[in-house]
Design a protein around this nucleic acid. Structure first.
Lengths: 147, 147
DNA sequence: TTCTAATTGAGAATCAATCGCAATTAGTAG
DNA sequence: CTACTAATTGCGATTGATTCTCAATTAGAA
């Protein structure tokens, strides 16, 4: 009963917006990629499959997906905005290579637990957190040494 | 003996670069602000004080300040790149109240340590990390309950 | 089936950041 | 101190991502 599409339809209806073929396609593509994506990625994938749709539509659809809590924007490492699905995926944090853009996902329960403790200490009620570590991945760190 | 300027001079000399008046001015401004800044902030501050210098020079100087470990780029959540000084400032993370905007700074060495361990595990060379927890501060959480 | 507000695509506009180039200059070597 | 040269500057043009404008189209309620 619960699927990204259902949630998206509900959200759109509640807002008086329409569930168009374009929005359905973008939604499907987003959830078929199983990972991070950006506007260009979606654009290219669509055009590869011969389904043309404009960049404007893609850029207009992303905020709706975020608002309906289906995806979230990740900490941006480069210039372009990057997203990842949240519906059906569990929480994790990121290592972001500032050279090649590679993103390594990790989950550390002890860190999560300590965050909760910090919140308790300050009587802070957490809703969401982001932990991003920027640096060089193994490959790029190696290349740097050799310079 | 150790000052941002000394460190910057050393860095520039080591790289065969020059310590120009423009670079000195930018450096001074950056460290007189005691907080986050971006290219436009520096540009405006300069022009307020009647010291004109071009945006290009500012954009060209920031990477040098980062490379010499005087400032760091914060993980960007908005469009424009944002920086903060590191020389003379100690690391901290943030609890951010999404209701009143209050920012609580905290430091937890165990979390820091665990982050290092994660990096080691993935052979990732960390340069900078940012942990932000969004939610409600004590005051605002209280108000919410009563609603 | 009708009607209307929402949506689309295409291209123009915007905004941050970078680049190319001619004129200038810091700082080293005499 | 002077000459020299590679680095630097400002300017304006350029790039690249994203947003906007607007006429034509369409989802979906009535």
């Amino acid at each position: 009963m619960f699927s990204p599409e259902n949630r998206f339809r509900d959200y759109l209806k509640k807002k008086g917006l329409k569930f168009t073929p374009e929005r359905r396609l973008i939604l499907k593509k987003v959830f078929s990629l199983h990972g991070h994506f950006d506007a260009d990625k979606i654009y290219d994938e669509m055009h590869k499959k011969n389904r043309k749709l404009s960049r404007a539509t893609i850029y207009r659809t992303f905020p709706l997906l975020v608002e309906s809590n289906l995806v979230k924007e990740t900490l941006r490492c480069q210039k372009r905005a990057n997203y990842e699905p949240v519906f059906g995926y569990s929480h994790h944090d990121h290592l972001i290579c500032i050279n090649c853009g590679r993103v390594i996902e990790f989950r550390n329960d002890l860190i999560e637990h300590l965050q909760e403790k910090v919140c308790k200490k300050y009587r802070f009620e957490p809703l969401e957190h982001r932990l991003g570590i920027k640096g060089y991945c193994q490959k790029c760190a190696g290349k740097r040494q050799r310079r």
